[in-house]
Nucleic acid binder design. Sequence first.
DNA 1: ATTCTACAATTGACAATGTCAATTGACAGT
DNA 2: ACTGTCAATTGACATTGTCAATTGTAGAAT
Lengths: 202, 202
Amino acid sequence: MAKPLSNEDIEQRRDELVAAALTILEVDGITGLTLRRLAEGTGVSRQTPYLYFKDKAALVDAMCVAGIRQLTASSSQAVLEASAKGPIEQLRMAGETYVRFGLQNPNLYALIFNPAKINAKPSDAMAEAVAENNAVSRSLMQRAWDEGRISMEPERLNNVFWAALHGLISLRHDGLICDDETFFQVLADLEQTLAVGFLNDG
Amino acid sequence: MAKPLSNEDIEQRRDELVAAALTILEVDGITGLTLRRLAEGTGVSRQTPYLYFKDKAALVDAMCVAGIRQLTASSSQAVLEASAKGPIEQLRMAGETYVRFGLQNPNLYALIFNPAKINAKPSDAMAEAVAENNAVSRSLMQRAWDEGRISMEPERLNNVFWAALHGLISLRHDGLICDDETFFQVLADLEQTLAVGFLNDG
DNA sequence: ATTCTACAATTGACAATGTCAATTGACAGT
DNA sequence: ACTGTCAATTGACATTGTCAATTGTAGAAT
């Protein structure tokens, strides 16, 4: 092994490292995710990950992209499976998928939405992955909009939904909504409020 | 200086350290907040902060509590100043204060809602500070509820608002809503949707 | 006034971690 | 067999959190 790595090889190694890193993250949390440990775990030496990622930030970015893409795939499938039920119900399924992803991958979710990069823009790759993910729900909203079911432009309503669900999940992860019961109560209340509002009059 | 510190002294030293730490956080971000640097900045030696805080986590917790209390004070004042305008408008003012706090103190806000403690419950002190903060808006909602202005119990609606605003601010800080224009657009859309819903029919 | 004691404060030391730089070693082409 | 190229490893260092040992001083005791 001393000839230049093919692009396929490089990509495969990167994927392997990302997969191993995601496992570490899942098991031991963000503090357990260390480059040395990742190297050990994959049976290589300390510095080897640097052959495939510029630095730890680049690895984390790749992990985030992988996570977002996984979410996008799940959402797409859920939307597809509910295609008979119309865009509004499909939206609900997409939201449910999003919430489930957040609950089942707390460490990864937190990594995606806060790779310790306060005030730093996400990378191009991550921005693209996020855009692809948003496209899933936005296309549903577009259909609902075309059918006259919703009262706000898709792009705008998508941001509203995203903020609401993201906030809920974040509060959960931060320990500010501790029990499941409260969480799903708030989720239901959020759905209702977003749907029909909280004001009694007009 | 060799006699036991009085409780007042200890508290004052703690406050000074927290203030200095908050300044560092504001200026150099979370990565710049290091115990050694804090010690240097306050003219003492490396280990001195350990006389007043068990470890770095304890310091961060104190910083969070201080931040939340500051927010609570701001909200209370804003609510008081708008007391003539009724609970709904007061709620809007409280929300505006919350958002402003999040925008003006991005590092502190992120620290409060993610002291690198994924899956860990907040400390008692922090939970109490958060509860006090929530009490401000919840009391407004209670009045609105008593007056029949809103359609959801105060406690529940408060969580809905909290999640929505928190999510919006977080997306902003994560760089996923980059420009001010979009941010305030989403904020307005969020207000409208929460108020009257997004569904056209019923 | 001198000695002693308690305690704040400092300094020494160490492990973990990210990362740069130098070294090693294997394979392809000559 | 020789050499150059490049993957891979090892050496080294700065930073940081934190424990342990040391220092020094203010007040109490003699």
